[in-house]
Design a protein around this nucleic acid. Sequence first.
DNA 1: TCACATAAGGTACGGTACGTACCGTACTCT
DNA 2: AGAGTACGGTACGTACCGTACCTTATGTGA
Lengths: 212, 212
Amino acid sequence: MADTKPKQAAPGEEQPPSGTRRRGDVLENAILQAAWEELRETGYGKLTMEAVASRAKTNKTAVYRRWPNKAKLVVATMMKHAPKPSLEPPDTGDLREDVLALLQGLIKPIQIIGSETIKGLMVDFHGDELHAKLTLPPRSEDILVKAIKDILRQADKRGEVKLDTIPERVVGLPVDLVRFELLATHTPLTDEAIREIVDDLFLPLVLRERNH
Amino acid sequence: MADTKPKQAAPGEEQPPSGTRRRGDVLENAILQAAWEELRETGYGKLTMEAVASRAKTNKTAVYRRWPNKAKLVVATMMKHAPKPSLEPPDTGDLREDVLALLQGLIKPIQIIGSETIKGLMVDFHGDELHAKLTLPPRSEDILVKAIKDILRQADKRGEVKLDTIPERVVGLPVDLVRFELLATHTPLTDEAIREIVDDLFLPLVLRERNH
DNA sequence: TCACATAAGGTACGGTACGTACCGTACTCT
DNA sequence: AGAGTACGGTACGTACCGTACCTTATGTGA
């Protein structure tokens, strides 16, 4: 009861200039940066809130004040630090090249994030309201599917395909398959695999009307 | 030191006939049964070794004596209790019907197991030597892909397709897509989706040579 | 038949990580 | 200047893991 004054238990080795207390965005960015580094070094499964806080030179409390759990924190840090695929149609003037370029640009960001993180997030978000956003937008709203459609639209203008005869499944096929490979394997997606997806599957399907 | 005799701390309410101590396979099956029920009721993420042991009316020790961790235990219980897809070619005499039948038979078992369990296992096995088996066999050894190939072989005999002109990717496509849907969504895979996979993607690809 | 290895029952522990509570203190804003 | 806010820091309660250790039943082979 008496003597409730833990104030400064240990005088500390060297109190670094205590006149610098980070706050607001500064601290927030430090945490997100720490989380990002921690994520890339130890992976999602082994990432702990304590380690993130420690690396950011702060403590769990400051982290939990901002994000209620690991999954949300990691999503936040990914939104900030993970490279985003460029979604403008490459527009090389050739359907095949366009699709290849898009897919190759797509895998890099996901490769960096890593399948382990994605799976971990899917598990931790299971049942969460955000779940849908992380797994599958309704396809028609999927930005990557939209990008494919843009490419197809241009090809349609050039007369390479007839867009309105192509089923939605076919449009979404390349993206679905790339995502599947990234989920199901943990080896990097090779250029050869992408070539197969485009040449053996996608192109034959979108171009098939021309065989009539 | 002295008086080391905790023998029977509490005399217990009613010592049920202590003359029945399960052992060997009996106990093992009880644990697997309990794990299976626990898995279906609470899901993989919330399943705990304690709960399994408790439901099996035994204790963690007996569980850990047999399986080193949750993931291995769950795999064991799935091998025992999860229905297995029938892999014999349905052989309805029609390629489309065969593939539809196979896929429809395939989704049921996975549906029962649940995507949450599969994802959880993939996460827990990340880096484990069993990882490959749970995610992707080298495609050429994938029993489901082999089943598709069997179906195609029969169709080839009937003259519906020319098997040796069909790329591996195409053969594996239906299975890959079904797996993807099950991983990426947590809503059940509809018959309509399966129909699309077969009619919009698979059949056009395997039958396309006939358009020449 | 009985001693003994084996394995089940059971308790308790050390360890990790989570998420929360609390307090004192620095900073910011008006 | 004063007050509210948010950071730094510690400590706590919970949950679950995986292990250690001991007691007790079982059934097998000497």
